[in-house]
Amino acid sequence: MLLTALALSATLQFDCPPGIETRQQLLTTPEGWQGLSRDQEGKPSQVLSHLLANLALFDGEQVQLKPDNGDNDELHYWSLLGNNLRPLYLVCHYQDTALTLQQALPLGISYCRVNQGDPYDLRGLICRK
């Protein structure tokens, strides 16, 4: 019972925002043309919505870490992370945009797994120190 309580107390959850809103705009308009912005339904709009599509774990800000169980369809996990000298970052990728969000994780994390309710309900990471 005490071990279970200790294990649960060291569990940390980091969830990506489920969606972001962006604005796409032409920086220059070619002569004789008019630029329009439309949403996913084809209606004129300045604001576009993008749902969370994927996530990644980075060592520092430049090196993406490959999951221990590779590129398969299983729930991805990463272990032995506590030896890193650089901080880990959760990077959230969104549909139909090159924009990402990133969040530095606390130092000392030794294990992370994807937090996913079902194959179509990606949320973020659950980690342990």
Score class of each variant (00 low, 15 high):
Val63His: 04
Gly35Ile: 09
Leu75Tyr: 06
Gly19Thr: 11
Ser49Trp: 08
Arg86Thr: 12
Gln34Glu: 13
Leu27Gln: 15
Pro119Val: 10
Arg123Phe: 00
Tyr89Glu: 07
Asn115Gly: 01
Tyr89Pro: 02
Leu8Glu: 15
Glu74Ser: 08
Leu36Gly: 11
Asp68Gln: 12
Asn83His: 12
Val47Gly: 03
Gln46Trp: 15
Leu8Thr: 15
Arg123Pro: 01
Leu12Ser: 15
Pro87Trp: 09
Glu61Asn: 08
Gly108Lys: 09
Cys92Glu: 02
Cys127Asn: 06
Gln34Asp: 10
Pro30Arg: 00
Ala5Gly: 09
Leu99Cys: 02
Glu41Leu: 12
Gly60Asp: 01
Phe58Val: 05
Glu21Cys: 08
Gly124Cys: 01
His93Asp: 05
Leu48Cys: 10
Gln46Thr: 15
Ala5Arg: 15
Gln116Asn: 06
Asn54Gln: 13
Ala7Ser: 13
Cys92Pro: 02
Tyr94Gly: 07
Pro44Cys: 05
Ala7Leu: 14
Gln103Val: 10
Ala56Phe: 07
Val47Pro: 04
Leu55Asn: 00
Asn72Cys: 13
Asn83Thr: 13
Glu21Arg: 10
Val91Phe: 05
Lys66His: 12
Pro44Met: 01
Leu107Val: 07
Leu88Gly: 03
Ile20Met: 14
Thr28Asp: 13
Gln40Ile: 10
Val47Glu: 02
Leu81Asp: 05
Arg128Asp: 11
Ile109Met: 12
Glu74Tyr: 07
Phe14Pro: 01
Leu65Glu: 04
Leu52Phe: 03
Gln13Gly: 08
Pro87Met: 08
Ser110Asp: 10
Cys16Ile: 02
Gly124Lys: 00
His50Pro: 04
Lys43Gly: 04
Leu101Gly: 05
Gly108Thr: 09
Leu125Tyr: 01
Ala7Trp: 12
Gly108Phe: 09
Asp118Val: 07
Gly32Ile: 01
Pro44Trp: 03
Lys43Pro: 01
Arg113Gln: 14
His50Gln: 04
Asn83Phe: 14
Lys129Thr: 14
Asp121Asn: 14
Leu99Met: 04
Asn84Val: 02
Val63Phe: 03
Leu26Lys: 13
Lys66Arg: 14
Gly124Val: 00
Leu12Gln: 15
Met1Phe: 14
Leu2Ser: 14
Leu81Phe: 09
Ser110Leu: 06
Phe58Thr: 04
Ala10Phe: 09
Lys43Ser: 02
Arg123His: 05
Asp15Ser: 11
Gln13Trp: 06
Gln64Trp: 03
Asn84Gly: 04
Ala98Glu: 09
Arg23Asn: 12
Ser79Trp: 09
Asn115Leu: 03
Cys127Leu: 08
Leu99Asn: 02
Leu80Gly: 09
Val47Met: 07
Gly70Arg: 11
Glu41Val: 08
Gln116Gly: 06
Ser45Phe: 02
Asp71Gly: 06
Arg38Glu: 08
His50Ile: 01
Pro44Ala: 00
Leu107Asn: 07
Met1Arg: 15
Thr22Leu: 07
Leu85Pro: 08
Leu52Gln: 03
Leu12Thr: 15
Trp33Ile: 05
Pro44Ile: 00
Thr100Tyr: 07
Gln64Tyr: 03
Val91Leu: 03
Ile20Gln: 12
Asp15Ala: 08
Pro119Tyr: 10
Ala56Arg: 11
Gln40Leu: 11
Phe14Met: 04
Gln24Pro: 00
Leu3Ala: 10
Val91Cys: 04
Gln25Cys: 11
Pro67Thr: 00
Ala56Cys: 10
Cys127Gly: 04
Ser79Pro: 06
Thr100Val: 11
Gln116Cys: 06
Cys92Gln: 02
